[in-house]
């Protein structure tokens, strides 16, 4: 069976799952405080040395990158796992002439699609929010789409190792409370990890570190923080590949052992 057909099947499975609504509501809730906050401070922005429109974008993306985005992806892994668990769908899939590694990778691809979808929704909600705030403060908060798309794209790429790790947790840990618990608990320390040199080995901190680095680039008085391609890129690729290989090896093992 081709990857495209398998992808089509997996996409059909998430129909009527309400995941789109959850991802959309999440980004609306994320931008609401920024839009409603009446005490918008242009002076603070000047002190930091960042233009207000850039600060509006970065603050939203920082909140997204630290908690909302990783937590939404943990919820998405729960969706993908539970859809197969209820009514023993997984047993049926394993009894069909499909490579379990291919199935595993297809499901991971669905996770990537959901991650991309949330970022696209974020892109849309950002522009709606920026337009509203621009009208309110008579100041143009709307940034060029290419710039926002670039930030969105970088965030997506930086999150891939984290998604691979979450997928590995979902595949290997059969008890739902443990896989969700470890996933959610792993998000919380990322705010501390980015201040240590060990952030390179902690994929959950990658999106937040990236946004912090972008923030420092855009603000004149915040010091500097770089996302060094070397050694970050080989470590990130290594983590992603290892997690996916382990996930493919472990995929369906629990159901086969029953």
């Amino acid at each position: 069976m081709s990857f495209a057909s398998l992808l089509d099947i997996e996409l059909k499975k998430i129909r009527r799952s309400k995941i789109f609504m959850l991802l959309f509501v999440a980004v609306v809730i994320l931008w609401l405080p920024a839009i409603l906050n009446t005490n918008y401070s242009f002076e603070t922005d000047a002190a930091i040395g960042i233009a207000s429109e850039y600060n509006f974008l970065v603050q939203g993306f920082l909140a997204l990158a630290w908690f909302m985005y990783p937590a939404s992806m943990v919820v998405s892994t729960v969706l993908l796992k539970q859809l197969e668990r209820t009514n023993k769908g997984m047993l049926k899939m394993l009894a069909l002439p499909i490579s379990s590694a291919k199935l595993c990778l297809t499901k991971f691809f669905i996770l990537l699609l959901l991650a991309g979808l949330q970022l696209l929704l974020n892109f849309g909600v950002y522009y709606a929010g920026a337009a509203l705030v621009s009208q309110r403060f008579a100041y143009n908060f709307l940034l060029p789409p290419l710039f926002v798309l670039k930030e969105t794209g970088l965030l997506f790429l930086a999150a891939i190792p984290m998604l691979a790790f979450f997928w590995l947790l979902a595949v290997t840990i059969q008890t739902p409370i443990f896989s969700i618990g470890v996933g959610l608990a792993s998000i919380v320390p990322s705010i501390l990890m980015i201040n240590t040199k060990y952030w390179l080995f902690y994929p959950m901190s990658y999106p937040f570190y990236l946004m912090t680095a972008e923030y420092c680039k855009l603000a004149a008085n915040l010091g500097s923080a770089e996302m060094p391609l070397i050694p970050w890129l080989p470590i990130a690729i290594g983590i992603t590949v290892s997690c996916l290989i382990l996930a493919c090896l472990r995929f369906g093992q629990a159901e086969r052992n029953c």
Partner: peptide, 11 residues
């Protein structure tokens, strides 16, 4: 569904 209640809680 577990992911719906979890999603609402996380939001």
């Amino acid at each position: 569904n577990l992911w719906v209640s979890l999603g609402c809680g996380v939001i």
